[in-house]
Nucleic acid binder design. Structure first.
Lengths: 350, 350
DNA sequence: TTGTAGGATGACAACGCTATCAATTCGCCG
DNA sequence: CGGCGAATTGATAGCGTTGTCATCCTACAA
């Protein structure tokens, strides 16, 4: 039996509506009234009932983070949701998690289903959902507000969310290893549906260009964002007749796979091979040698995306696309180019 | 303007209450009625409005996972929440995340606050919250249902949630390295407020006893669940006059710290030192060498804890404490005891 | 056939808030 | 000091469910 708005109104000697105004930061409330209401509310330890608020207001005050369940790097998502929660807290919204299977053919229906079931007021999408134009168009049709994080491309209307200059970051990483003398620089590219893939590949090529290194397409192999894809990619690159001395992986998990495979072959990092990741997951700091990578401010990204989304829910047309900064983390997995080539020999696995 | 229960009732030719009964799996509905209602609902694509349901039912249909924000290993939490979501889905409940700062003195108030604000029907607690008797007692007072995951001790009433025999698992890990010939086995213990610490220490001692190794308290150092605590712990153990040849860390993050420090000293793993973790985080597979550890079925734990919690919400006294199995993951960070002692030398850092 | 227990169904009033719009008050000008 | 527009406040009707309790069946025993 918590206090109700009616109780607060009685104690404060005002109408329920005035209490409602105070709690929703509506204009046209005299300062004196506001104080009386706030006092009364505090004395009763009043908390508005979210269900009643939603029902009467015809909104759920709920936004969801939609992400790819089995694939997603968990710390990335985890940080984003914490940022979202921070943004929601101050706006009396709630955030929920919708791990969906992107590879499943019904993934758009699954998103629609979530919206209908929970009456979601808005969505935050991360790749690959954020890159799915079909999905975005459908959301526009439905009139569902959404913000994207690191989305590839524009759709019809103005984009809302956060973006990070992955292309520039990737280029700078290539600068870094080029400065260390590397000329054969490989890239294990990300998965095709992710916008990040294209950006990172473009940045990789920018970097090569700046260093005056000719692009060699055999040094770019298809990969993914998983540890396993790093192993596969490293195998393909290291088996090349003239293998790379540095490998830029699609992300940290993939970079770990690259390192793993290099170690399996008896190589030393960075003495025989330099490795670069992307994301700066907790693992990046914990592996040996610690991984040179690009840090994304995931928590901020979640917070900002939610803030923009909430703004656009409040009044359509007010959300923006915010650029967030990256940070190069030059650690111990990159070093000077090896003086002589690593002896090719039969792979030894234990 | 989604369909309302009234619309379904009209189409099906029954009362709203009957529709409600069908959707809530209440007894005493004739099969024929049930079918008519289900058809009508499907034809209208009817979804009950959660807010209205909560308001009228005087419940939020919401449970929350309470965990320690900055400390928690994210993949652990992430898996638990996915399990929770799976359990909630089938019971038309929702799950939310409450990352709170345990070290903050107001952590109990923060939990109460969450309950009041969101009208939570129940909580799932993980350590250290699950081990906080003061908190548990307070929840009992408030009449808030909760389930715990890996909680240390009983409180007054019957415990609900999941438990894993960490002691036995730890003992088996000691068996494992003892069988490899190790006699000097160190332990970097977990943080004091976590129940897991005591279990793992006890299991460590069980293992020593079984192997006929005398307990040497200098081989057990205080640590934590962080990477840094592993570094600190490894430093203390490896600086010992007669250092251990195997180190059992409190968890995987800590074990990564131990490995890191060993590598810093020029040691090889497992040639010079065997390392054991606990949890089987994704990182455990990705580090080199891959980490020998104990796998906890986090997703199942989350699902089962939620199932038991929901059962106990439905009718008090029906939730149980479920034992979940662990799995020893013997990977490449453990190996035979070194033949000769690793040369003590000045630490080299780059 | 009738009586009856209990299963099946329905009518209607909450649940606690916000939206709407009317009523009141305020500030200021002429 | 009256009057007028704008700012402020309030009365009331929902929002879409579920709980309560009354009513209506139905099957089975006598």
């Amino acid at each position: 039996m918590p206090a109700r708005i009616e109780d607060v109104a009685r104690i404060a000697g005002v109408s329920m509506k005035t209490v409602s105004r105070v709690f929703n930061n509506e204009p046209n409330v005299r300062e004196r009234m506001r104080q009386r209401v706030e006092e009364a509310a505090k004395s009763l330890n009043y908390r508005p009932n979210p269900s009643a608020r939603s029902l009467a207001g015809n909104r759920s005050y709920l936004i969801a983070l939609v992400y790819d369940d089995p694939a997603a790097g968990s710390s990335y998502i985890m940080e984003i949701i914490v940022g979202m929660l921070a943004a929601c807290e101050s706006s009396r919204y709630s955030a929920m998690l919708r791990p969906l299977e992107y590879s499943h053919s019904g993934h758009i229906a699954a998103v629609e289903d979530s919206i209908a079931q929970y009456r979601l007021d808005g969505l935050i999408l991360v790749p690959p959902f954020a890159d799915d134009l079909k999905l975005l168009r459908r959301l526009d049709e439905l009139g569902t507000r959404y913000a994207t994080i690191s989305a590839k491309a524009n759709v019809g209307h103005e984009r809302i969310g956060t973006i990070l200059d992955e292309r520039k970051a990737a280029a700078q990483m290539v600068d870094h290893v080029a400065a260390l003398g590397h000329r054969r620089i490989g890239h294990v590219a990300g998965p095709l549906p992710h916008g990040g893939r294209a950006w990172r590949v473009a940045g990789y090529r920018d970097g090569l260009r700046r260093a005056g290194i000719e692009y060699d397409e055999s040094l770019v192999v298809d990969g993914g964002f998983s540890f396993e894809s790093g192993i596969v990619g490293a195998n393909r690159l290291l088996d090349l007749p003239d293998p790379p001395t540095a490998i830029f992986a699609a992300n940290d998990d993939s970079a770990c796979g690259v390192m793993h495979e290099a170690f399996e072959r008896g190589m030393k990092i960075p003495a025989d091979l330099s490795v670069i990741g992307f994301d700066d997951t907790p693992t990046a700091r914990q592996v040996w040698p610690s991984l040179t990578t690009v840090r994304q401010p995931c928590r901020d990204m979640g917070r900002i995306a939610a803030e923009q989304l909430l703004a656009s829910i409040r009044d359509a047309g007010s959300g923006q696309l915010i650029h967030v900064p990256y940070e190069l983390k030059l650690r111990n997995s990159t070093g000077p180019v090896p003086q002589r080539r690593f002896p090719a020999r039969t792979k030894t696995r234990r």
